[in-house]
Nucleic acid binder design. Structure first.
Lengths: 248, 248
DNA sequence: CGGAATTTTGAACGCCCTCAATCCACGTGG
DNA sequence: CCACGTGGATTGAGGGCGTTCAAAATTCCG
């Protein structure tokens, strides 16, 4: 099993950035978050490195790519967080995704050769580009890589499917609860604290993501706070009663 | 270019079914709807046949697969129509897709090895199963097939992304208008009449798909009718003013 | 043909939105 | 150092759109 290297550059909670001086030539461990690497032998992992480009910094509020840009490849988030924004054709914007370290995004760009959404950094972040042309060639030899790529795409389909279910039928209260639990879960998977975290999105962005208005987000968070389920202090969140949140 | 064969079994508008007596060993033309075949040489198309299983009939209201069933492969719809239903984990059902002939579904099952939704026939229909294990092997040799598969998955991501934008922000009126235009467009692409069609879903299913209640669907259709934009007669729809619908 | 499912339409309610004012954190420049 | 400006967050009041409940009409299908 490949070793994990520390890839965080800016830590989660406001502390000064850890500068990554060593220009990273990607070790096997770094491939872990990709999902592409799972189940591969070390020898094959080495070949996968070729598809992963140089780590790249993106400052807060900067666009990594925009809707309509020529598709170059997808990206894996190394550190920080992103949002993806769609809806240009429909005349209004909608946050379709909230991306955490280790997750891959930009996959919607494959089918038409151009990105189908914007990707905006919510804080200073680091990404690795995945060259799709290289990956495709590699997939012909490496059966496992191909399967992992297909799985990655399928996962995104399932994720969006779930989000659709939420955007339909759920009450505003439930949406916010699900949102908090979802972030908690994903952070926990990545080794961060599960019950205490900083939201990188504004209330407006959260609202867009959940299909409700920013005031409703704020009111709902306040109510949860009042009821003792969570503690809200601006963007700082502490979950007190996960059970109750899940049952809303 | 491979020739197109008639693959419809039950025609769109209530006429008696055309019985397909010739047990279909799939010709190149039949692969057209797959998307998998686009851009391939005739020689390669022949090899693609191996992944396409025997045509299979599904009667109205029958389940082709259910949430949690072991993933065997995806399906291409040959004739008829399907809905996909998700939301089992969340405690209520939601129609996530409305599938027309030529479209592929069941792709969400890849990532966890089991289907992530139900697939229910809205009328007597015919499908062709796609063996994923066979397809994966083929993709190693056939660069084009792999690219087409990836594109197919990406397309689904984009489609769902659009649906999410709709489920967020849009008024009920707009949702219904977009829904009608979307179906019209897709039927037109497949050689059916664009402005006159039969809805196979109930008002309740449409409502679930659009994130509104069945009464709202009914009321909105009635209003469009009253305003002369469309003609509604139960499930029969005629579009009069496509322009106006698009501008709602 | 008959019973059940679906659709339509009405009336009243409620959740979320809209509009608006205030508060707060933060960074900037005098 | 503080005044100031700005963007974000909070909270309140009122209104509107879609829901809910209900009943009648119609269609579907075995």
């Amino acid at each position: 099993v490949p070793q994990l290297r520390e890839t965080r550059i800016w830590p989660q909670q406001g502390a000064p950035p850890i500068i990554c001086t060593l220009a990273p030539k990607y070790s096997h461990g770094d491939l872990w978050p990709l999902g592409l690497a799972s189940g591969l032998e070390n020898a094959d992992l080495a070949r996968l490195e070729a598809v992963v480009g140089e780590r790249r910094m993106v400052r807060r509020a900067d666009y990594l790519f925009r809707f309509g840009d020529k598709f170059q490849g997808s990206y894996t988030l190394r550190a920080g967080s992103f949002k993806t924004v769609a809806g240009h054709e429909e005349g209004f914007q909608h946050v379709t995704g909230y991306i955490l370290p280790g997750e891959t995004f930009g996959l919607g760009g494959i089918c038409h050769g151009q990105y189908d959404c914007d990707a905006v950094a919510l804080e200073d972040s680091a990404v690795c580009p995945i060259s799709f042309s290289t990956l495709e060639i590699l997939c012909r030899d490496l059966r496992g890589a191909q399967r992992n790529l297909t799985k990655l795409l399928s996962q995104e389909i399932v994720r969006e499917s779930r989000q659709m279910v939420m955007l339909s039928g759920m009450t505003a209260e439930r949406r916010v609860a699900v949102f908090l639990l979802n972030i908690s879960h994903r952070l926990h998977e990545r080794g961060y604290a599960a019950r205490e975290f900083t939201l990188r999105m504004t209330r407006e962005e959260i609202g867009s993501f959940l299909g409700i208005k920013l005031e409703t987000v704020s009111r709902t968070l306040s109510r949860f706070h009042r009821e003792g389920l969570i503690r809200v202090n601006g963007k700082q969140i502490v979950l007190f009663d996960v059970q109750a949140l899940a049952e809303i």
